[in-house]
Amino acid sequence: MNHDTYDDNYIRGILNGVKTIAMVGASPVNVRPSYFAFKYLAQRGYDMIPVNPGQVGKSLVGKPFVASLRDIGRPIDMVDIFRNSSVALSLVEEALTLDPLPKVIWMQLGVRNDEAAAKAEAAGLKVVMNRCPKIEYGRLSSEISWMGVNSRTLSSKRAPIPTQGMRLSLNRVSFGGGDTSAADRAAQGKKDPT
């Protein structure tokens, strides 16, 4: 599938469907993006598992670190890759040895590995690359519009009051999907700089 842009329904389906997320490369340093993305998703009710071999014995917002995906020891729905693009392939190969298989491979904003994506998709997994689940969750639930971001969603229903541990509505009507001419141009600009 096209990984330059994503339809909102595709992203929404993943965020509504997954419950358990293993974040590979999660950092215990509370000013790193992986830390606050992890914390945000935990506060929104996802069962978060931090994966980082250098941090075993410590925990992240109360969740103990594990060294690798194989060490989790229970089924996971999604692997969120917070590592360099170059190691994404070996992480996907590791994920594909799990039983049961995870349903989704998600590569963080700035992370893209098309070979890894093709391998995961061939095994029936859904793949998202170069996106942040925190940003996408915030956008599709309208929470992110507190920062002036175009959520590309509309709703005439009363907005939920966000509180810790609650899931916001991800069912607002989308407009524009991921397929805007600007998004295409941005993706093109990154691929072949002129």
Partner: peptide, 25 residues
């Protein structure tokens, strides 16, 4: 499936706005 794209006039009225969570305004 791609969702329907609202037109310009719809966005001019609705984009960004949602009934207030506290009062329903």
């Amino acid at each position: 499936m791609t969702e329907r794209l609202p037109g310009f006039a719809t966005l001019a009225i609705h984009a960004g706005a949602q009934p207030d969570p506290t009062t329903g305004a």
